[in-house]
Design a protein around this nucleic acid. Structure first.
Length: 558
RNA sequence: UGGGAGGUCGUCUAACGGUAAGACUGCAGAUUCUGGAUCUGCGUAUCGGGGUUCGAAUCCCUGCCUCCCAGCCA
């Protein structure tokens, strides 16, 4: 843990502090991060990971990684593997404490038998529809199941036979016997077990009955000695049930604490909807750089430290909020600014000819790798009479306030010379500018004290530059909250058709050694990360984030 | 309409009966061989109405608004 990760106060931390002060759990703090392996982790999970692991670390405790794998119809090993990778990547240290709810299926079954013996659970033969009909509504209580008063013996027998596979899927359930009139729907004789013949990713076909979340979660927490079971707000209503089960069993009783999940503007956080994007091919996969998944962000170039700092600065509360995406970007940029080596790359090449540059001359210019990091060193960049600059950096007729290249104006070539534009070539058919002609001033080579110019632009040497494919990503959605749709519409109406633009650029030759996952700052453009599909002979970069661009902002206002 | 949980700058959070603070965003300026970074400045925010108190974002009453819950999902 470093300074940027150092704990920040929040109500959960206060709760723990207060508990410790009163001697609760002997001052022990043990949390858990309990994902269901039914999809990839997203930034929202990053918040939870940082909270759970961070709290454990701060109080000298431990945090378990536990897969909540009680629904074999949705869970897969692929998800388990990606989740483990993501948690580790974010720095979540679960040591050897990698657990599964399915590890406890037998114990859960035995406890269910205990509850039956205590007359607190019964086998119900109602169909799904009937259960729903008898559950009542938000304003009216439900009706007791006609099977509610079966004898303990009959319940024991039926439950055993449910487990033994004597009954078809969905034909019977085990329910807790609580109170059908409870204003809390969760306590209206909730389902504990359902019959489900599906291959479980770990237990295979050993079981054909599976515990429901409410029946499993608290008991798993108890088994693992979890002291603080932190979950999101929507489980607030479940806490009475969480407590009820633990009380009936008279076992170690963890405390469930709820906090607000992360919501980000222009982002979807629902695994169900993210899965749809993957299945419909809207994105390349769960790790598409436009996805709000941890793996997508990793591929996009977000650093674990950037994400960690973001999570820490979010704060934790019980108020439902919508965090601005800009805040995330800020912390990502902040980290990348400190750590990413600078390099020059041209996205949309435009030929720049230095008309007075000596024929056949070539030279190398010295460039700083990272002005924010003295230890990053320097490198040599080849320079010559034919260069490429970005089309953005030349205008035939400059708008007001434009300081870059235009006829008659001079700019500095980064780490090179001051050049002055005296001509340009335009394709008469298309109107496209194909060449810009400048003279350079040999007296102004970088490092020499010379006159100042208003702008410095980046460039690459036409002869030595290497081709690169650059994927320019933009927001996946055009609406701040893609969940809020008009009647009859769904979130896909807000998909941004321009969320990806691919360009063929040119990069300085030092980039030839770039390996997948390497992060760079392309000077004046933004942060970029080598994609996993990148090959030495065909480099592919993903744009992580643009640099803050006050010029673009100015223009937008006009 | 039943139950649960919440309402503090544009956004996210702090203040735990004693000067409403920070970060992000935005704006203005300084600086700069990245229109980056950095630095400086700029904030009419406690949902409304009552009350208790010397003093209320905080305690009480009341009204309003928002979110969650009727899966054999988690």
């Amino acid at each position: 843990m470093n300074d940027a990760d150092s704990p920040r106060t929040n109500f959960i931390r206060d709760l723990i502090l207060a508990g410790n002060a009163s001697g609760k759990h002997g001052g022990r703090v043990h949390t858990r991060f309990p994902p269901e392996p039914n999809g990839y982790l997203h930034v929202g999970h990053a918040k939870s990971i940082m909270l759970n692991f961070g709290l454990a670390e701060e109080f000298g405790g431990k945090c378990n990684l536990r897969f909540d794998d009680t629904n074999p119809t949705k869970e897969e090993t692929e998800y388990v593997e990606s989740i483990i990778e993501d948690v580790k990547w974010l720095g979540g240290d679960f040591g050897d404490r990698l657990f599964y709810a399915s590890d406890y299926f037998q114990q859960l079954y035995d406890w269910a038998v205990d509850l039956i013996k205590k007359g607190k659970a019964f086998v119900c033969d109602l169909s799904g529809d009937q259960v729903r009909e008898t559950r009542g509504t938000l304003t009216e209580g439900g009706r007791n199941s006609p099977y509610r008063d079966r004898s303990v013996e009959e319940n024991l027998d039926l439950f055993a036979r449910m487990k033994d596979g004597e009954f078809p899927d969905g034909s019977r359930i085990l329910r807790a016997k609580i109170d059908m009139a409870s204003p809390n729907l969760n306590k209206r004789d909730p389902v504990m077990y359902r019959i489900l013949r599906a291959e479980h990713h770990r237990t295979g076909n050993r079981w054909c009955i599976y515990p429901m979340y409410d029946w499993a979660h608290g008991q798993c927490d108890s088994i693992e000695g979890i002291t603080h079971s932190i979950c999101t707000l929507e489980f607030e209503d479940h806490r009475p049930l969480y407590d009820w089960y633990l009380d009936q069993l008279s076992v170690f009783h963890p405390q469930q604490i709820e906090f607000d999940r992360l919501n980000l503007t222009y982002t979807l956080m629902s695994k169900r909807k993210l899965l749809q994007l993957v299945q419909r091919g809207v994105v390349e996969g769960w790790d598409d750089p436009r996805m709000p998944t941890i793996s997508g962000m990793r591929r996009r170039g977000y650093s674990p430290q950037g994400l960690r700092t973001f999570a820490r600065n979010l704060g934790v509360s019980k108020t439902t909020g919508l965090t601005e995406f800009e805040m995330l970007e800020y912390y990502i940029r902040e980290d990348l600014n400190r750590t990413a080596p600078r390099v020059m790359t041209v996205l949309r090449p435009l030929k720049l000819v230095l008309t007075n540059y000596p024929e056949g001359q070539a030279e190398f210019l010295e460039a700083v790798n990272n002005p924010e990091d003295a230890d990053a060193g320097k490198r040599s960049v080849p320079f010559g009479g034919e260069l490429c600059i970005d089309r953005e950096d030349f205008r035939e007729t400059p708008p007001k306030g434009y300081h870059r290249l235009y006829p008659g104006n001079e700019v500095r070539l980064r780490y090179g010379y001051i050049v002055k534009c005296h001509d340009f070539v335009k394709d008469p058919a298309t109107g496209e500018i194909t060449e810009v002609h400048c003279t350079y001033d040999p007296e102004t080579r970088s490092g020499h004290q010379t006159r100042r110019v208003k702008s410095t632009i980046h460039w690459v040497s036409a002869a030595e530059a290497i081709p690169v494919e650059v994927r320019l990503y933009d927001k996946l959605f055009t609406a701040e909250n893609p969940n809020e749709t008009p009647d009859g519409q769904d979130f896909t109406m807000y998909l941004n058709p321009k969320s990806l633009e691919v360009v063929q650029g040119k990069a300085e030759p030092s980039l030839a050694n770039a390996r997948p996952g390497d992060r760079y700052q392309f000077e004046r453009l933004g942060y970029f990360c080598v994609d996993k599909s990148s090959k030495a002979e065909r480099l592919v970069f993903n744009r992580t984030a643009e640099l803050r661009d006050t010029w673009a902002k100015l223009q937008k206002r006009l």
